[in-house]
Amino acid sequence: MADQTIEIRWHGRGGQGTVTASKLLAEAAMEEGKYFQGMPDYGAERMGAPIRAYTRISSTPIKPYCQVTEPDVAVVLDATLLDIVDVTEGLKQEGMLLVNSATSPDQVRSQTGYKGKVYTIDATSIAIEALGRNIPNVPMLGSLAKVTGMVSKESLIHELRTRLGATMKQEIVEANVLAFERGYDGTKAT
């Protein structure tokens, strides 16, 4: 396998499951025999505060243990962050921006000025419908799996069932799997 590394920066607000999502993705990568890091960027974290997390996935061992400053992908779990955080800072021009938003990718593009690929997914509506709560991390994971193709849908669903199944009721786990699949299928591209 060629040396392929993908670096992701997550933007969310405390309570949206951003750190959990970054780690779920890393664990799913392990299922595929890849190397990974799931790294939270701890600040004074509290419900609602802007937070960041990073995931690195690679076919070869990962050397650096530092923040991702030039991500291939920026994932935004809360569209209100677009006004207060520069989510495209350092984002590679040939990379991609994925935003939880009911609006179109074009609208996000004009709001952020990002020239690379832009995707939107209405993860909040999916989460409220499937889970009854606005925790958009799992549908965002589905969307991310679709647009990057770096970790398979099957590995991630397996990971969801294993990880969430350890502590959650069966119906909640399956609701999350449904939310994941809707995220996977419902992504809008430019």
Partner: peptide, 12 residues
């Protein structure tokens, strides 16, 4: 081991 950087980061 570095706090957070290793301690709270998920690794292989």
């Amino acid at each position: 081991l570095a706090g957070f950087v290793l301690g709270h980061t998920l690794g292989r």
